[in-house]
Design a protein around this nucleic acid. Sequence first.
DNA 1: AACTAAGTTTCAAATAATGAAACTGGTTTT
DNA 2: AAAACCAGTTTCATTATTTGAAACTTAGTT
Lengths: 267, 267
Amino acid sequence: MARVTGDGTVGKALEVLDQVAAFGRPVRFSELLAESSFPKPTLYRFVQTLTNQQMLAYDPERQTYTPGIRLVRLAHAAWEQSTLAPVARAHIDALSKAVGETVHLAQLDNAQVLYIDKRNAGQPVEMYSQAGKVGPAYCTGVGKVMLAFLDEAAAETVIEQQSFHAFTGYTLETADALRAELKDIRQNGYGFDREEHEPGIICVAMPILSTNGRVLGALSVTSTTGRTNLAGLEAYVPILKETANNITRDAQNWSFPDYNAKEATRI
Amino acid sequence: MARVTGDGTVGKALEVLDQVAAFGRPVRFSELLAESSFPKPTLYRFVQTLTNQQMLAYDPERQTYTPGIRLVRLAHAAWEQSTLAPVARAHIDALSKAVGETVHLAQLDNAQVLYIDKRNAGQPVEMYSQAGKVGPAYCTGVGKVMLAFLDEAAAETVIEQQSFHAFTGYTLETADALRAELKDIRQNGYGFDREEHEPGIICVAMPILSTNGRVLGALSVTSTTGRTNLAGLEAYVPILKETANNITRDAQNWSFPDYNAKEATRI
DNA sequence: AACTAAGTTTCAAATAATGAAACTGGTTTT
DNA sequence: AAAACCAGTTTCATTATTTGAAACTTAGTT
């Protein structure tokens, strides 16, 4: 009677897969069971099936499960076909070479920032980021510029899903503070991360918009307070803008899925 | 009665996911149907479920499906936890900086080579490779060195799964030619790719073995015939060997940091 | 030897997947 | 303008799979 999971057996199995991925470390069956809503044999069979399918990997010595290697193969296809990455590739290469700093390319995934590409240049920033990594939208440069250029309703939906946490003394801690910041960003056309997520890490970010104004993703140049400051990063705005425009242009001829459906005719 | 697919509904759904990924481009429902073993409504529901679950993305304008963004998130967890990449990261950074050439890190996945990391340095090689990409084992440097250090039975199993295709005039075209090459590699401890996969692309490859001799993966330094030759690449063997040793060492201690000792004494 | 906890298997009942057929809504042909 | 056609979608009785309480097996304690 009580529907807990959507999409039948497949949905349930994928829920288990997410659960394993969420642990972020090799996990035992009993640990999964402890926080699972499935009864023991059901969870057991899901884990077996996923392992068979190489969606999970099993270490028999430690009796632990990790997300499997098949995901890496599948994700490559996803990355190539469902993200901005292939279109942006050459442009962010050029950008990182020109500015000699770390460049990030991100898209919005649900209410989070999903990093889809990264270039290290010169002295790389020692920060934990990687293609496939997700981060908070409200306290990253790329996250804020994407929110800023979403339409009102979509932005509010995303803002309400943020769970504000003060990573540093500079983190915006309320929805209202964020709304005020987004207004500024909309006016300037670009935004900063002022050590809001990690101490010492700052960036300048630029949205990538389609010709009809839809948010496709965002770009950023990241550095450290030891190496430069916000004024220094602001000097990259023209080249960032140019790079974003180039990506927009190339994205026109490329077909990729419209996450917010319906909008194709709107605007 | 006749079992066509393993692992029940979940296995079947993942088969559909693979099928979409295999197309390598946005694909229509009817195209999937044409080569699917599932009846129309069944395939339809799988595609719907997978799309709901963001394992596929749907472009309503073009009525096409591509692998979904959820895979990118999941794969990051897989990459971090089930591959050599996190352990090897710093070492291949150093290697690519030292040699000024493109470095690849790969693992064996079924009978294929799965590239799990890559570093461009100096003038990057314009070759199509990427983390997550798969390639043939019998005609790549990393593939051959991994096969060479597999135990007899495992190697034969993999060799029998190769479908030999002459990509260039230098490609090894038979299992016997490959076996002879593997023998040489075993004696030398390293191998080359002599333009066997792509014209003008050559590499020197080194296996990464565990302390008890199991194949963990492989490393390679890639260049072009325009820039150097096999003798030139051979000069990198010592640093490649050192890098591989460093990765082996770190793979021992760093492997699963959360599981303190107890079992560390085994083997 | 008895106890315990993690992992695994069993099997009748409950549930979900299946697929032939029929339906829509476009587009092309007659 | 009607008919035929095709891609995509829905229906529903039939069939097959999933489900989970309980029982079992191991391996590690006490």
